[in-house]
Lab assay of single mutants.
Amino acid sequence: TTYKLILNGKTLKGETTTEAVDAETAERVFKEYAKKNGVDGEWTYDDATKTFTSTE
Rank of each mutant, 00 (worst) to 15 (best):
T1R: 09
T2Q: 10
T2A: 05
T2L: 14
Y3L: 02
K4C: 07
L5G: 02
L5W: 04
L5K: 00
I6N: 03
I6K: 05
I6D: 02
I6Y: 06
I6W: 04
I6P: 01
L7S: 02
N8R: 10
N8P: 03
N8I: 14
G9L: 08
G9S: 07
G9Y: 12
G9R: 03
K10M: 13
K10W: 13
K10T: 13
K10D: 08
T11D: 12
L12Q: 09
L12P: 04
K13H: 11
G14H: 14
G14T: 15
E15A: 08
E15R: 05
E15V: 13
T16C: 15
T16S: 10
T16I: 15
T17S: 11
T17Q: 09
T18Y: 14
T18S: 05
E19H: 13
E19F: 15
A20R: 02
A20V: 04
A20T: 05
A20M: 03
V21E: 12
V21N: 13
V21F: 12
D22R: 03
D22S: 08
D22C: 06
A23P: 12
A23M: 13
E24A: 13
T25L: 06
T25D: 08
T25S: 13
A26V: 02
E27L: 15
E27W: 15
R28P: 02
R28E: 08
K31N: 04
K31S: 04
E32Y: 05
Y33K: 01
Y33G: 00
A34I: 06
A34G: 02
A34K: 01
A34E: 04
K35E: 11
K35A: 13
K35L: 13
K36H: 09
K36V: 12
K36R: 13
K36W: 08
K36Q: 13
K36L: 14
N37T: 08
N37I: 12
G38M: 06
G38I: 03
V39C: 08
V39Q: 04
V39D: 03
V39T: 04
D40W: 13
D40H: 13
D40S: 10
D40P: 04
G41A: 05
G41T: 05
E42L: 12
E42S: 11
E42C: 12
E42N: 11
E42M: 12
E42A: 12
W43P: 01
W43Q: 01
W43H: 01
W43Y: 03
T44N: 08
Y45V: 01
D46C: 10
D46H: 06
D46V: 05
D47T: 08
D47S: 12
A48I: 11
A48V: 11
T49Q: 06
K50I: 01
K50D: 01
K50L: 07
K50N: 07
T51P: 00
T51V: 06
T51D: 00
F52G: 00
F52Y: 05
F52K: 01
T53V: 08
T55D: 09
E56R: 03
E56P: 06
E56C: 07
